[in-house]
């Protein structure tokens, strides 16, 4: 298992918002400049702290979506209805704004770019964010590890990175991308348009005997379901790495 190179104290650093990409009507990517950023590994996250004028603070954790690139760090944030922090990040923040981050955090749900083993990525909704960091790192590093992504979202319009994923699937050798939609009109005939189950994991994933590393990220129910199906299909539980996004008013 990968061990993190998170050493010493993680101090709060000021992050400048330098650019914003509107991903969907409820999600956006914030491109940050973080001076003295120590670098990160794909799959890690940051703690983000907002401070109000009276000193009140709120902290949340957000996955990093970018490959390591100096002090440039990209977060993709999905607005949680009735949340405290995510509506601010999605609806209010503009380039030039600043807040604090500390990290990178997490040394378990991390892909090692030096590992040539096949990789299966299974994303539910905004769970694709840390997996995107892995896909981007793979490309940036020229890794030959074969990657397959199965990305489940409610509808095509609610998925993030769709254009970039299409382009990468065409241009990044060894990367295959399969979309699944859980809420589309019943008249849809596209075979891909259904909930991810055993069949889809077999068709679009890897056979267990290839020894792939599986990264599963999404809402709790999705991760519970997919990880159980993978283990039932014969994957080594120790190679099914999970990250669950609880519905927690972020």
């Amino acid at each position: 298992m990968a061990r993190a190179a998170v050493l010493g104290r993680l101090s709060w650093r000021v992050a400048d918002v330098v650019d914003i990409v509107e991903e969907t009507s409820t999600a956006r990517s914030l491109i940050l400049d973080v001076p003295d950023w120590p670098g990160h590994r794909p799959g890690q996250h940051v703690d983000l702290r907002l401070t109000a004028e009276d000193g009140y603070t709120a902290q949340r954790s957000y996955s990093i979506s970018s490959a390591p690139d100096g002090g440039r760090v990209e977060l993709t944030v999905q607005r949680v209805e009735d949340g405290e922090v995510s509506p601010y990040l999605v609806d209010v923040v503009e380039p030039g704004d600043r807040f604090e981050v500390r990290g990178p955090v997490g040394g378990y749900f991390v892909w090692d770019p030096d590992d040539p083993a096949p990789v299966l990525l299974v994303a539910g909704g905004s769970g694709v964010v840390p997996l995107m960091a892995m896909i981007r790192t793979r490309a940036a590093r020229g890794s030959p590890a074969p990657f397959r992504l199965i990305y489940s979202s409610r509808t095509p319009g609610t998925g993030v990175y769709r254009q970039e994923l299409r382009v990468r699937a065409e241009s990044n050798p060894g990367l295959e991308v399969a979309f699944a939609f859980t809420r589309v009109p019943s008249t849809a005939t596209d075979a891909g348009r259904r909930r991810v189950g055993t069949d889809r994991l077999r068709e679009s994933g890897w056979p267990p005997d290839l020894g792939p590393t599986c990264f599963v990220c999404g809402p709790t129910g999705f991760v519970e379901s997919i990880s159980r199906l993978l283990v039932d299909a014969g994957h080594d539980p120790a190679r099914v790495l999970t990250e669950r996004f609880g519905p927690t008013g972020g």
Binding site: W12, V14, D47, R49, L50, T51, A52, E53, Y56, T57, A58, Q59, R60, E84, Y88, V92, D97, R98, F99, E100, G246, P247, T248, G249
Partner: peptide, 27 residues
């Protein structure tokens, strides 16, 4: 820390004492 422009925050209406950096959930 530095003030985040336009962030007001949402103080809990319940008078609770949480450890630093934590927020309350019901689920």
């Amino acid at each position: 820390g530095i003030v985040s422009r336009g962030f007001g925050g949402r103080r809990s209406s319940r008078a609770v004492n949480l450890p630093p950096g934590q927020y309350l959930v019901e689920d």
